Simulated scan of single mutants.
Amino acid sequence: MFQIIGIVLLFGLVFGSFIMSGGKMDVIIEAAPHELMCILGAGIASFLISNSMTTIKATAGGFGKIFKGPKWNAADYRDLLSLLFLLTKTMKSKGVIALESHIEKPHESTIFGRYAKITHDHFAVDFICDTLRMMTMNLEDPHQVEDAMEKQLEKHHHEALEPAHALQSLADALPALGIVAAVLGVIKTMGSITEPPAVLGGMIGGALVGTFLGVFMAYGLVAPFALRLTSVVNEEGAFYKIIQAVLVAHLHGNAAQISVEIGRGNVPSPAQPSFAELEEALSQMPNE
């Protein structure tokens, strides 16, 4: 919502100030189509040249995140803590063998099945199951498990940030591409140097539109999009850090209730359930 308001304000205030100061939109409107063709065409071409197909597809999908925001909300964090509570409680009371059926086929698990949104996140499910699988193989050193989990998180986060980096690279290139378009306009103007000053003035003004559009799109649109996408990816990454915190706390010998309380402390403040809210959610769960 705020992104749409920001875009409206961006165009309204920039072009509104130009009009209020006596500027004529005719020159910009006339020059914009071919200037945009040059700038955006070169920008898209450089984007395709410099990125893999995976990154290109992820960038296209990233625009949904820019406008929708992080996929996880307060209820999802509460569900995650409840899921981890069930898993660690089962492991404590029944042993790691009792978890094998749940971690080998999580989509058929009665525990995972209670939390459909989490189950549909492949990385979250794999991250939980792979870690629990290591524990069933008697890898119970908390420091080794934490290190292995940290490397998985770093890899996932690095890959998730690729679209944001690609957008930022495009934003860095657009001002220079705007200059390219402007130079082409100046070359065109110099080829018509015998024209009267009024005509030459219009041609130079049209050429400068290229510089304006390159800078405007870079710092007004694409760079903020890249920054917003980075912020969303970082917020979503906090969800997976909770998994690490709870499972490592469990390996340190803490009770299930204590482990999820440690995890609750790491939940971002806007989405963090209170102690009472989490306790109520846990008390309402049927025994597994």
Results as ranks from 00 to 15, higher is better:
D121W: 10
R78S: 14
F63M: 12
G43D: 11
F63T: 01
R78D: 02
I49A: 12
L83G: 01
G62I: 11
L80K: 02
L99W: 09
T54C: 01
I111G: 03
L36Q: 10
P142L: 08
T59R: 00
I56W: 01
P142W: 03
E140D: 11
W72R: 03
I103V: 15
L36G: 08
L81A: 04
K65Q: 09
E100T: 07
K117C: 06
R133T: 07
E35H: 09
R78L: 15
N73A: 12
I66P: 01
K71D: 03
H143P: 00
T59F: 05
G61A: 13
F123K: 03
L132F: 12
C129W: 03
H143Q: 12
R78C: 13
I49H: 04
K57N: 13
L40N: 05
P70N: 07
M149A: 05
D141M: 10
D76P: 02
K92Y: 07
S46H: 06
I56F: 10
T90D: 00
K94E: 11
R114A: 07
K65Y: 07
A75T: 09
G64Y: 08
I97H: 13
S82Q: 10
N73L: 08
K105A: 13
D141F: 04
G95V: 08
S50Q: 11
G64D: 08
G69M: 09
K117N: 12
G95N: 09
L40T: 07
K117W: 02
L86T: 03
N51S: 14
A124T: 04
N51Y: 03
E146L: 00
L81G: 01
F112M: 07
I128H: 00
E108I: 01
D147C: 02
D130M: 09
A148K: 11
F47E: 07
F85M: 06
M149V: 06
L132T: 06
T90I: 12
F123I: 00
S46W: 07
T88I: 08
H34S: 13
E104T: 15
E146G: 14
F123E: 04
K68R: 10
M134D: 11
T119N: 13
D141N: 15
F47I: 15
L99K: 01
T110H: 09
P142M: 08
Y115V: 08
D76R: 06
H34E: 12
M149P: 04
M37C: 05
L80T: 03
I128Q: 04
P106A: 10
S82F: 04
M149W: 02
I39F: 08
L40Y: 09
Y115M: 10
F123M: 02
I49P: 01
K89D: 14
